[in-house]
């Protein structure tokens, strides 16, 4: 932290702490939601300052954007239930005090252990650098996610898929009907959708050599879907096509891994010569699936008739 950046970093860090505190103590859920979204944007700036632009992208797209929309949607559903009990402002009592002290102690210890890392601690960066030429991509984050530790990512995609299944098990109440979209909203949707698709594709492609990739691209694509849904609600029930697209990314990833294993390599061992194109293929499939996953999470499983308990 040099003199150049000191002011900025202090303002940013101060704001983040302030926001976190207000978020937890506000009794108005609506304001808390707004602050949550603001927090996401600022957190993404913090990741930029920490030289982690990939995480910054993901935080801006998923943490602030898609999650923000999800929370807003949840808030509307709470609103529709009639005057909800306003959340009680957080008061300090003995268990909370003990909890807070424990967490603060843990935080202090974490801070201490970060500060006591040996100077110039590099983790696995030299190993990563040595393996980069064989990874098929230039961006080390993408190389880690899709090649060195692609197996982790495969299972992460499974988690996203499971989230959709989880939403489908719940019979959410249908959303109360919204006002029909006005002309301005239509214009906005029509004007924003094409650039969203382009940017998603660009992020996917850029992932090979710069920050970006399937998750970030998918979030932007999903934002397009959510925008469309907000203007003109549609239903993505568990129909065949929807299920196919949801499972597509995981299936492609898994089948690539298995094919490589049967061809004499190990599971998910991408041959050096084709690693780049295989990664792009896997990421494209994953992006499409993850984008639809986010849209399904937003649209939910509202049935046509009132949600019936099917236990």
């Amino acid at each position: 932290m040099s003199g150049d950046t000191l002011v900025l970093d202090l303002v940013l860090a101060g704001l983040l702490v302030f926001l976190a505190w207000r978020l937890l103590t506000l009794s108005d859920l609506f304001k808390a939601t707004v602050l949550f979204i603001v927090f996401g944007v600022l957190l993404s700036l913090a990741w930029v300052r920490l030289n982690a632009p990939d995480v910054a992208l993901a935080e801006a797209a998923i943490g602030a954007g898609v999650t923000g929309a999800l929370v807003l949607d949840a808030l509307r559903r709470l609103d529709a239930r009639g005057p909800a009990d306003e959340a009680q402002p957080l008061r300090l009592n003995l268990p909370r005090l003990v909890g807070a002290l424990l967490v603060m102690g843990l935080g202090a210890f974490l801070l201490w252990s970060v500060l006591s890392l040996p100077p110039g601690w590099r983790g696995l960066s030299s190993e990563t650098a040595a393996a980069m030429p064989r990874s098929g991509v230039v961006n080390p984050v993408t190389a880690s996610l899709l090649n060195f530790r692609g197996y982790d990512t495969l299972l992460e995609i499974a988690v996203l898929m499971l989230a959709v299944l989880g939403v489908w098990t719940l019979n959410a109440e249908p959303m109360p009907p919204a006002e029909p979209a006005g002309p301005i909203l239509d214009v906005l949707v029509k004007a924003l959708l094409p650039p969203m698709v382009v940017v998603a594709g660009y992020l996917l492609w850029a992932g090979g050599h710069a920050p970006g990739g399937a998750f970030q691209g998918a979030a932007v694509l999903a934002a397009g879907g959510i925008l469309l849904h907000l203007a003109r609600p549609f239903n993505v029930a568990n129909r065949g096509v929807v299920r196919l697209v949801i499972g597509f990314g995981f299936a492609v990833f898994l089948l690539v891994g298995l094919t490589l294993a049967t061809l004499g390599g190990r599971f998910l061992e991408l041959p050096e010569r084709h690693a780049g194109i295989l990664i792009l293929m896997i990421e494209t499939a994953a992006m499409i699936s993850i984008a639809l996953t986010f849209v399904v999470l937003f649209v939910g499983n509202a049935r046509d008739n009132a949600g019936r308990d099917t236990s």
């Binding site: 060195f148 692609g150 197996y151 190990r266 061992e269």
Partner: peptide
Amino acid sequence: RYAVGGWGAPLGI
């Protein structure tokens, strides 16, 4: 042991 992806620890899994 089995190195998924062929990289081996600590880089791979």
